[in-house]
């Protein structure tokens, strides 16, 4: 089963995203900031990361830079998921190695479309 790490400091967002991703057949883990996510990634790299930007301790972009420097860290598909919606933010995330970018608010259709766009098409559970 494919794995996805949800990184967001909002428990509500994590819960909503988890429900969507589990319906798309992902095994989900959660982290509430970049540092926590980094620790989980060093233990085991996920196939995908749904990544918030603004978080305490270590923000999403710092995490992304760090992840891409890890051994094998270029492999996970990373989809930013943030309220930041200025073109320069998007460009910075892509330059840092994000595969796709979701502007909050999102719904299941957007997550599904963006993950497929990033190279993770799925068979939905029936």
């Amino acid at each position: 089963m494919r794995t996805c790490l949800i990184v967001d400091d909002s428990r509500v967002i994590r819960r909503v995203a988890r429900r969507i991703l589990e319906a798309l057949d992902f095994q989900v883990e959660e982290a509430s900031d970049g540092a926590e996510a980094m620790a989980l990634c060093r233990d085991r790299l996920p196939d995908a990361v749904l990544l918030d930007w603004n978080m305490p301790v270590m923000d999403g972009l710092e995490f992304l830079h760090a992840l891409r420097r890890e051994p094998g860290g270029e492999r996970p598909i990373v989809v930013l998921c943030t309220t930041r919606n200025e073109p320069e933010h998007i460009a910075a995330a892509l330059a840092a190695g994000a595969n796709e970018y979701i502007m909050k608010p999102f719904d299941g259709d957007i997550i599904e479309a963006k993950f497929a766009e990033a190279g993770l098409p799925f068979g939905r559970t029936a």
């Binding site: 796709e100 999102f106 957007i110």
Partner: peptide, 20 residues
């Protein structure tokens, strides 16, 4: 709308062909 541009459009195409 932000919803409409996130349906079907790759983010790179959004950056290239749209102004906010």
């Amino acid at each position: 709308t932000q919803f409409e541009v996130q349906r079907g459009l790759p983010i790179a195409q959004l950056l290239r062909w749209f102004e906010k």
